[in-house]
Design a binder for these strands. Structure first.
Length: 268
DNA sequence: ATGCCGTATGATATACGA
């Protein structure tokens, strides 16, 4: 069956509940992975999701910061839900589950990394690099034959030159520095992952999923970055049907500063 | 270097985002 999977850094699910409601009305992915929900599980607003037919959910939230969640329609029950923590820090950044066909879905919110791209001077940047190293090592250890993994989330790295509005200008800006791109590349190599969006959009074409709030007109300035990603393991490479960015969602009012990234997969 | 804007919090300022 064909399934659409979306990943969206919603930047507070409660503050952007209207945007959630509109997105689910207009585009209705079968599976929705959220990041930066910024709410504890007992306060999560489940009703709007249920009203739109998302009867399955998995939550991993905390107060004020971070937080990830997975929602799915009736035909996509979520099994074996797991919460993961990394770098010995108790933060809600990684939630996984298993889809009906046995595919393992991983939803990540990678640390942003702070302002200064210096691991010695900036503990947040150190944490970001260590997070990617630790997760990459974990995925490498899990390597088996016919692994069917889907990895989505706000990975907070724009790896390609065309994943940012100005490559040269962003080389020393956190999210596009060479050391972050190297760490992401090692993570990417841990399973010979396939980048769903770049499977359909050539590498010489600019693609963004995040546009700063600090621009008076985000669409006109178009100073974006592609921070949100969907990767699949080689066993699922042939199942990719389409992928792209739901850019119009960035224009909702009020909106998250991220737009959803969506992929369609033909799963057995 | 800073500002730009937005969200959260025992909050009327501060941390964080990237």
């Amino acid at each position: 069956m064909k399934i659409s999977i979306a990943t969206w850094n919603v930047n507070s699910v409660r503050a952007h509940l209207d945007a959630v409601d509109r997105y689910l009305s207009e585009q209705a992915p079968d599976v929705l992975c959220l990041q930066e929900t910024k709410v504890m599980d007992d306060l999560f607003p489940l009703e709007p999701f249920r009203d739109h037919g998302y009867v399955h959910h998995a939550l991993f939230g905390q107060k004020a910061y971070h937080g990830v969640a997975i929602f799915a329609r009736a035909r996509v029950p979520l099994a074996k839900v797991k919460r993961h923590t990394w770098c010995g820090v108790d933060q809600a950044r990684h939630l996984s589950c298993v889809l009906p066909g046995g595919e393992e879905l991983h939803n990540f919110y990678v640390p942003a990394g702070g302002d200064k791209p210096d691991a010695e001077a900036n503990p947040k940047f150190r944490h970001k690099l260590d997070f990617m190293t630790e997760v990459a090592a974990w995925f490498k250890r899990r390597k088996r034959r016919n692994n069917r993994f889907i990895l989505v989330g706000d990975l907070n790295v724009a790896p390609l030159e065309t994943d940012v509005w100005n490559h040269k200008q962003l080389l020393r800006v956190v999210s596009h520095t060479p050391i972050e791109v190297e760490h992401m590349a090692r993570w990417y190599a841990s399973h010979d992952w396939r980048d769903a969006v770049r499977h359909f959009i050539p590498a010489d074409e600019k693609v963004y999923s995040w546009w700063s709030y600090r621009s008076p007109d985000w669409r006109k300035a178009d100073k974006g970055r592609r921070l949100d990603h969907i990767w699949v393991t080689p066993a699922l490479g042939d199942s990719l049907v389409s992928a792209g960015v739901a850019k119009d969602v960035r224009g909702y009012k009020p909106a998250s500063d991220h737009a959803p990234v969506v992929a369609e997969l033909n799963l057995s």
